[in-house]
Nucleic acid binder design. Structure first.
Lengths: 140, 140
DNA sequence: TGTCATTGGTTCGACATCGTACTATATGGT
DNA sequence: ACCATATAGTACGATGTCGAACCAATGACA
């Protein structure tokens, strides 16, 4: 069990480094992740919603969103339903940035893929999701 | 595939937080990991060897070892075979600190364990090790 | 309507992590 | 023996991440 978490930690570290080596200068994995999230889950989300989705504190998300806005990849608008809140939208630059990043990373990831059995990946993913839910519950 | 790395990243984050919440004040996961490594792999390792084992840059390891030495959990001795190098040894305090941490974390991790099938854990672990090796190779 | 607790977001300070540059020792080739 | 190159460890600066404190807007409730 310790070993499992250990392996997970190291892979997380390696995959992050792998990713960031293929992103421009100061961009970091969470930047890409947020763009991706907005495409998949939908735009117009609030910062807290996004922070919860990634299980990070909201001030960290403020920081990440700040970087994305400064680079013109997202647009921040007020939330018409709540005066305290904001909503996050992709710009055209943000959308195309995500696409290019996926191509670039995907290309370099190619050589690794044939080595892994698709079914095994799916089973592992299922187990990890289960594990994550378990850990969420243990957080009280 | 992206989703797999995403899940791994979040679990890594959660498990780290879980761990560190059960360590004293300023201690952090790498501190424990290094102590554990020394017990399992053996004492007398050099900082670079340890850094490589954890896939972190050597200056990060310098920092981590500094923290452990300051707390009296390890002892640093010169390397008789190489004047540039040092060797790292556990103190009694370090050894017992590790034991206590394992007990404390293990106790709180108990409620999660019955939820997971041991065979599934083993299979996942096998796959992740394979994946890690693949990624190591891709690092050139 | 007035008051209090809750929630969204930011600011600030602390710290881990990392790239780069640097010193000191070791190693290999001539 | 001498010099070039590689390697071990450290120092420094930049930055991501986070907890705590804070402000503003909302909601609950008398």
């Amino acid at each position: 069990m310790f070993e499992l978490f250990n392996e997970i930690g190291i892979i997380s570290q390696l995959s992050r480094a792998f990713f960031e080596a293929r992103l421009p200068d100061g961009m970091v994995l969470p930047h890409f992740s947020v763009l991706n999230h907005l495409v998949r889950v939908g735009e117009g989300r609030t910062p807290v919603q996004i922070a919860r989705a990634f299980q990070v504190p909201k001030n960290s998300m403020t920081h990440t969103l700040g970087g994305l806005e400064m680079r013109g990849l997202i647009e921040v608008r007020p939330n018409p339903k709540d005066g305290r809140s904001k909503t996050i939208w992709l710009t055209e630059a943000g959308r195309s940035f995500r696409e290019e990043a996926i191509v670039r990373v995907g290309r370099d990831m190619m050589p690794m893929l044939p080595e892994m059995d698709a079914e095994e990946v799916a089973r592992t993913l299922g187990f990890l999701k289960h594990l994550r839910e378990e850990m969420d519950r243990a957080r009280d």
